[in-house]
Nucleic acid binder design. Structure first.
Length: 582
DNA sequence: GCCGTTTTCGGCCCGACTGTTTTCAGTCG
């Protein structure tokens, strides 16, 4: 495949089918038809390979949730770039109505109501109608609903995007720790998409176990960080923090811990699938129990017991996306996912030689404290002026310092000299080959001109990958969460090149990056491409960010053998040496 | 619209919470 293909991407297609689903739902179409479009959209978004190639191979019906009708629509999209059905639906329901669904407590029924009875076709029109008091009086809408909608629109404006994992994680852990200290609380955990380690989250989900839930939820509602309480019932409290993050807390008695933790962890798709399986066994699974065929209600204090009751082994949270994990569990083929403790090396770190904040010795000691056996200092190369990239003579002086620190620290940790070399505009690297050959680790990264056209930037990266001295491609797409998309790379070509050259692709653990993402990482691993989980640390405590990279890898079903930093030291060093020689 | 070691037609998860209601619809996860 060439890099020129300007065809529709998986995410373009997913957006189209998601919009179709929303429009049909507002229109009042059969809910299962709506769900079918939504399932197909999710399936396309989660596809590791390019749907375009699946189409070319005539295998669209292999994609889960794609049957005859949706396959025909994909065919039309790929052939003509348009979809008649989509255009027809848009003439029936204004596409701007879809924005209304983002407002909390506004779903398809209310969107249809506001459209039909108040002439609202967009979010600004909804806001105007609410301000003018035109919504109250509509069937089922009173003053409270109207005020809630206005507040919801305001909240949307304040919070334009999803919250990055790196922001939500510490906030959630702090709240969980606070809950654990409340009287009567036996356990408290972070659940939801955070526990599944999604790279961005919409809200924070917390679960607590207490014999008497009420005082726990009372206390939580009055936590100093809570801005307003959105809902509070017997089992669940939902709040918005002063910083606009939304938090939901479930509190159940300890004997129900297993079911509630499972339920609150999701994903919704995973839970739906699980309940279908339960139903096959005439079991009814809810957030607090399983009702047996004879009507008896059984509680489960451990998550593993819930899965066992449905005939499954416990499934790691990061896998719970209904991407085949339930089938794998049924077949007894769940992978042994990588864990932080498997990693023996950090292969991407910076020191004060470029834009890091700590000395080489401090970084090496920090790595040693975290039980690592190897750390590579990979400071920036000369062209990245803003990061004080190293000139060739700097590299030679840096080698002297590394040797000195190595002598001081002895065998306790191995310090490698590397570089994070710029990939220049023409795809060449920043140092001549004879210099690269002397370095222990060469990471090639894109930092500049990320907005080049697809064909140009893809070829630029491919050229760098063909340099035999390159060991690892750093943060391959260059995305920055939550808002800056990565380069418009033809990832199929990139993955194929990696498979051919044997180069490793990085899973950059820095929370703003998490790049490769879980979808591409899984695809890469399936293609036999070696992966490398690195923190890109600029100071010692950044080494702990590795947990987020491990989270991505676990979401990608990755095992220790597929990650070069989890290999035994000798195997890793041999691999690096072999690559350097080309 | 999709899907099938009980099915190619008839299913397709379940309960909490809110606001508007006098028994329920809509939304959410």
């Amino acid at each position: 495949m060439s890099a020129q293909g300007e065809h529709l991407s998986n995410s373009d297609l997913a957006k189209i089918f998601h919009t179709i689903a929303d429009l049909l739902e507002i229109k009042g179409e059969n809910i299962y038809k709506v769900l079918a479009y939504r399932r197909a959209a999710d399936s396309l978004a989660n596809l590791g390979g390019d749907a375009y190639e699946v189409w070319q191979a005539g295998e669209l019906n292999q994609i889960p949730g794609v049957g005859k009708a949706i396959a025909e629509k994909l065919d039309e999209l790929f052939r003509t770039g348009r979809l008649g059905f989509y255009e027809k639906v848009k003439t029936e329901v204004p596409v701007s109505l879809v924005d209304l669904l983002q407002v909390p407590d506004v779903g398809p029924k209310k969107a249809a109501l506001f459209w039909g009875k108040a002439g609202v076709t967009s979010l600004p029109e909804l806001e105007a109608a609410a301000r003018e008091g035109k919504l109250r009086g509509l069937p089922g809408i009173g003053e409270k609903s109207e005020a809630k909608i206005l507040a919801g629109i305001e909240a949307l404006k304040r919070r334009s995007t999803r919250t990055p994992l790196g922001v939500a994680w510490p906030a959630a852990q702090e709240l969980a720790a606070w809950l654990r200290n409340l009287p009567g609380v036996k356990a408290a955990e972070v659940a939801g998409s955070l526990r599944r380690m999604r790279s961005t989250v919409g809200d924070i989900d917390l679960v607590a176990a207490a014999a008497d839930p009420k005082p726990v939820m009372e206390a939580f509602a009055h936590h100093s960080k809570v801005g307003q309480v959105l809902a509070s019932g017997e089992a669940k409290t939902s709040v918005e923090l002063k910083n606009t993050l939304r938090v939901q807390l479930w509190v159940h008695p300890p004997e129900q811990w297993g079911t509630v933790l499972q339920y609150a962890t999701g994903s919704k798709e995973h839970s739906v699938h699980l309940r279908e399986l339960a139903q096959d066994k005439k079991l009814s699974l809810s957030d607090h129990s399983i009702i047996q065929p004879d009507g008896q209600e059984v509680f489960y204090s451990e998550e593993a017991e819930v899965y066992a009751a449905i005939g499954l082994p416990w499934i790691p949270p990061e896998m719970r996306e209904d991407r085949g994990e339930i089938q794998a569990a049924l077949a007894g083929k769940l992978p042994r996912l990588i864990e932080r403790g498997d990693l023996i090396a950090e292969l991407h770190s910076h020191s004060t030689w470029s834009d890091g904040h700590s000395s080489i010795q401090a970084m090496a000691e920090a790595a040693r404290e975290r039980s690592l056996k190897v750390i590579a200092i990979t400071d920036h190369s000369v062209s990245l002026g803003v990061a004080r990239g190293l000139k060739i003579e700097d590299l030679q002086r840096q080698r002297v310092e590394i040797d000195a620190v190595q002598a001081k620290l002895g065998d306790s940790i191995r310090i490698l000299q590397g570089t994070e070399s710029e990939i220049l505009a023409d795809g060449s690297l920043d140092y001549p080959d004879e210099i690269l050959a002397k370095l222990d680790v060469v990471i090639a990264s894109l930092h500049s001109s990320l907005r080049q056209p697809r064909a140009v930037i893809t070829e630029r990266l491919l050229r760098a990958m063909r340099n035999p001295h390159v060991d690892i491609v750093g943060h391959p797409t260059g995305r920055l969460l939550p808002d800056r998309e990565g380069a418009d790379l033809d990832m199929d070509s990139v993955l194929k090149a990696a498979a051919e050259t044997g180069i490793a692709l990085e899973i950059n653990a820095f929370p703003e990056r998490l790049d490769l993402d879980d979808i591409y990482a899984r695809r890469a691993a399936e293609m036999g491409i070696p992966l490398s989980i690195n923190t890109d640390a600029h100071q010692p405590d950044h080494l702990d960010l590795v947990q987020f990279g491990v989270g991505v890898a676990r979401r990608a079903w990755i095992t220790p053998d597929q990650v070069i930093n989890a290999w035994p030291t000798k195997r890793l060093l041999d691999w690096l040496k072999h690559r350097t020689k080309g």
